[in-house]
Amino acid sequence: MSTLPKRIARQLRQDIVSGRLPPGARLPNRGALCQRYDASLVTVQAAVEDLIKEGFVTVGARMRGSFVAARPPHLHHYKLLFPCDPSVRSEFWRVLRDEAAQMGEESDREFSFFYGLDGHRDIESYRDLVEEVRSERVAGLIFASGALEFRGTPVLDQPGIPRVGIAAEYELPGIPRLHVDYASFFAKALDVLVAQGRRRLAVLFGATPTDDKSEVERQCRAAMAARGLEVNPLWQQFVDVRSPQSARRCVRLLLHGPADDRPDGLILADDNSIPAATRGLRETGLRTPHDLTVVALANFPVGIRAAVPVARIGFDVPAMLNTLATWVDQLRNGGKPPKFQSVPAIGEDEYRRRYNQRPEKR
């Protein structure tokens, strides 16, 4: 499209985004637009067709006039940005994506997804994302993690776009964000184990080789110390989330030996490793919960299928997503959501009571 049609489309788009032309409003007829912009009918038609492709404008019945779409993208299209494909790295991200897709089917919010730069900005999906942001075809951006890879780009710098995210307090500066409170997960998990008389506790964390492991380990050890539990460094192990089968071997090693010399409680602090870790536990021949009590992280409504009985404690992903989308709406309407909000862990029974349903098992 040449410069003049782009300029006309941009000005009409701004009229729509600003509310001067609200959803359902009729656009001026082609003749009026030709006069307003001192342009030919062909030029005006090209601009309107561009807005139709973007979802801002629809054509009336029998081609009688053009109207602002009932659900224009700047009010209904939410973009969820992941560092990578969730199926490759994170069960939490996968559940978040699936819940967004379901919310899109059950509400007037529409979600689409971006799966990271992988160190490159010359990829088509990134160019499409930048164009969506520049043309304000998004109600807002929801970051599933930090956004360092977008520094100095329109994704973070374009004014007028609501942005929210899930990140630690020091990440996403200036962007309202939720933080998954793993300290509360460890506190609840330890309370379950202590209530069953377990004192010799092992913890299996998930990480990648480049992750900072110190904070999550510190939170776990602090929760154990607060309950008078001994911290055995050999019983706190990290497994690579990209190689979950390593969890199977690690659990077998942790549980090898006489009863008095091995853990009697196990916390699986990463749901990516649950299937492999519990298969390894089953292979030891130990009985749960008779010989060993297991507490596993869950991202509700999904509880990853385990090979042995486990107690599930985790986070309410639908509630988190709804909070983030609501914050986007508040920002769009001039509101001020919290700058930072911590999300506490809940038990499976609490989740059932909250939604009057049983979490899905996979």
Rank of each mutant, 00 (worst) to 15 (best):
D98E: 15
V180F: 12
F315V: 01
R199Q: 07
D50P: 03
W327G: 09
G303S: 12
R137G: 15
Q237H: 03
G116R: 08
D118V: 00
N299R: 04
H120K: 15
P209Q: 06
R200M: 00
G265C: 10
P359I: 05
D108T: 14
G335A: 11
R332N: 06
E49I: 12
A168R: 11
A222I: 07
D240T: 02
F82G: 05
D191F: 02
N232W: 00
L234R: 05
K53E: 13
R121C: 02
T153M: 03
N272E: 13
R13Y: 06
R279T: 14
R20Q: 14
D98M: 14
R353S: 11
L292W: 03
N299I: 00
T293A: 13
L51W: 10
A147W: 04
A222G: 04
V68L: 05
L141Q: 10
T208H: 02
R97T: 01
D260N: 10
P162W: 05
N232E: 03
F205K: 09
M63F: 14
P72E: 07
A276G: 04
V155D: 01
A70V: 01
R26E: 12
G146E: 11
E49Y: 13
R177S: 07
D128T: 09
H179I: 06
A183K: 11
V155Q: 04
A100C: 15
S125L: 00
G334E: 05
K336T: 15
V308F: 01
L281P: 13
W327F: 01
R64F: 05
L201I: 15
K53N: 15
P244N: 10
A144E: 11
F300E: 08
E131C: 06
R199S: 09
V68R: 02
G146Q: 13
A70G: 14
V48H: 06
E99W: 08
S18D: 15
F186G: 04
P359N: 06
K213G: 01
R134W: 00
L286G: 02
R97W: 09
Q158E: 15
A187C: 07
E169V: 11
V164R: 04
L80K: 00
Y115M: 10
I52V: 15
L254K: 03
R287D: 07
P337H: 02
P289I: 02
D240L: 01
R62W: 04
I166L: 08
